[in-house]
Design a protein around this nucleic acid. Structure first.
Lengths: 329, 329
DNA sequence: CTGTTAGCGCTTTCAG
DNA sequence: CTGAAAGCGCTAACAG
């Protein structure tokens, strides 16, 4: 095991100079720095993470907790999100790992907190009611949620601004002349803010409640023209169902987008793109959002106990037309 | 931050006693242990991972590197494997995390090694030619591969014993009276060891080369009776294609398993089970295998530089008949 | 710009 | 069975 003492000897400088040459936390002459780096290279020196963490106060490491990491074949973890976090966090000289959670019961969080090797945790895919938030908060570990959920205290988060996104979609359809809009959703009512927006735009919304599966969407397509003759625009919150709908449409004598224009508001850009050219989206850059989340995490760690103030960040997307929204005349 | 010094004071014992009471590495009277644990509870004490790692030699932590972690929608990471490793490693008092790798280029490994916060690494989903192995080996970080690949040095690994598995399947079919066997594979020839086994059992093998998709399998079913009239047993190395085949069989006037018995050798038990009752398997317990891999990892870390001897472990499965292999008469 | 030094919190001898 | 004390390798004052 080579330590920074060995490097110091090799380079003929003091130990702290080695540290500073490596961290850049104080000015070092180029000559010395070069000698140090050469010595590091020659000795194959690797910094000891544990020692740095111990001396430095808090470990320079963030942990991602992704719920349902391995649930069912196509787990919904998104590579872009993880990549973004990794990069955002790395930019600050931190590392990031994924904490493997099978069942997201409390013992997983508990173990993480008890082990205490992580400077902060990023919670992803939070559910409506997520006990982990409460635990994290009580343990006073810095944490950021990528997404949001309902709890009775303030916390750091980064999330899409769904309300604005929805409104953009609605407004776009209005501009194109559509007034009767179908809302593809699964097992839930039309969001209040959408209703409000529709009212003020004098548009009519109709709930299209289908299971979020290819078949669910396909089934909707079959009877669509008969059961919803007036609908000419659709805002969809579902990915699979929408793709199923679009795929089946032609066979059902339904022309997209000539007869119906669809805007997806809850799918990733890449998903819509690869899935079907007929789905426009209010796109946003998941990678960039996650990266910003990583940065926020590091800030929260470095702020430490000093500032208690919580931060939050909302991301709005831009409308992306793939030539698949038709004017209603 | 409460430290073990606080606990010592609270419990009225020395610092080392607290450590030993917690680790159990030396006998402590019940009375003292109780006092210590009570103090820990009361103060909400959490051990400092970094300090423990620093003082204890190597960090009690293993890192999983899963290549293609986020490749394409249905990433092939298997929950059972990760769960098994986590549990196997945890049993030894170690923790485990997943190192997020997007593109498995060298920089990912390099970063991991340079950061040096992990006592050992488990490589999963290794590819035919995997540079990471070489890097790990050169860096002298203890590592275990879950799977195998080709390199010019010895290393620790845990893997299925495919040859034995294949032979079990073949022998089973022989016992049932089948002599003409189809081998479902994608884009590759029949393995040599299978050919040899078949020869010694006086069985005939025929390659059924199809893409590993539901459609691929279905297509095979369509012409099956005409193009392969003599085949009465099948050994399949593919999952999706086999399921497609079985699903389509009835419609094609092919009765499974009355006319053809199928044994899957490359699918997880759960997969075959949920997919179709008509597929028998040579089953193996992925979870247990991975757990054993986790244990091996910890052993390797603890062995440290002492013993250089490599270990390896091969797992064989058992034949599982779901009442779906028919005797050929 | 560079060197000295006091810890960070824990594990582990070495002494009872 | 329990205590005292010496580090693990690094960071961050404090002193030039």
């Amino acid at each position: 095991m080579t330590t920074r003492a060995d490097i110091a000897r090799l380079a003929g400088v003091s130990e702290s100079t080695v540290s500073y040459a490596l961290s850049g936390k104080r000015p070092i002459s180029d000559a010395v720095k070069k000698r140090v780096l050469a010595a590091v290279e020659q000795a194959g020196y690797k910094s000891n993470y544990a020692a740095a963490a111990l001396a430095g106060g808090s470990p320079r490491m963030v942990t991602m907790m992704i719920s349902n990491l391995f649930a069912t074949p196509a787990s919904r973890i998104n590579g872009a999100l993880v990549d973004g976090i990794v990069d955002g966090v790395r930019a600050a000289g931190f590392h990031s790992v994924i904490w493997p959670v099978s069942n997201d019961d409390e013992s997983d969080v508990d173990l993480l907190l008890r082990s205490n090797f992580s400077g902060g945790v990023i919670l992803m895919n939070v559910k409506e009611k997520d006990e982990r938030l409460r635990l994290l908060n009580r343990a006073k570990v810095p944490f950021v949620v990528l997404g949001r959920t309902k709890v009775d205290f303030e916390y750091n988060f980064v999330d899409r601004d769904f309300q604005s996104v929805d409104k953009i979609a609605l407004t776009k359809l209005k501009d194109l002349g559509h007034e009767n809009i179908g809302i593809i959703l699964s097992d839930s009512p039309i969001p209040a803010h959408l209703k409000r927006a529709a009212a003020s735009l004098k548009m009519k919304l109709e709930l299209l409640d289908v299971p979020n599966t290819l078949d669910g969407g396909a089934l909707l397509a079959v009877h669509f023209k008969k059961s919803h003759p007036t609908i000419s625009g659709i805002i969809s919150f579902l990915d699979a169902a929408t793709i199923g709908f679009v795929n089946a449409a032609a066979d059902c004598g339904l022309s997209i987008p000539r007869e119906v224009s669809i805007i997806g508001v809850n799918m990733l850009e890449s998903q819509a793109e690869s899935a079907h050219q007929a789905i426009s989206t209010v796109a946003f850059d998941a990678y960039e959002m996650a990266k910003s989340c990583g940065k926020m995490m590091v800030e929260a760690i470095e702020a430490g106990k000093n500032s208690k103030k919580k931060r939050s960040e909302l991301w709005v997307g831009d409308f992306v037309d793939r030539g698949s929204t038709a004017v209603k005349n």
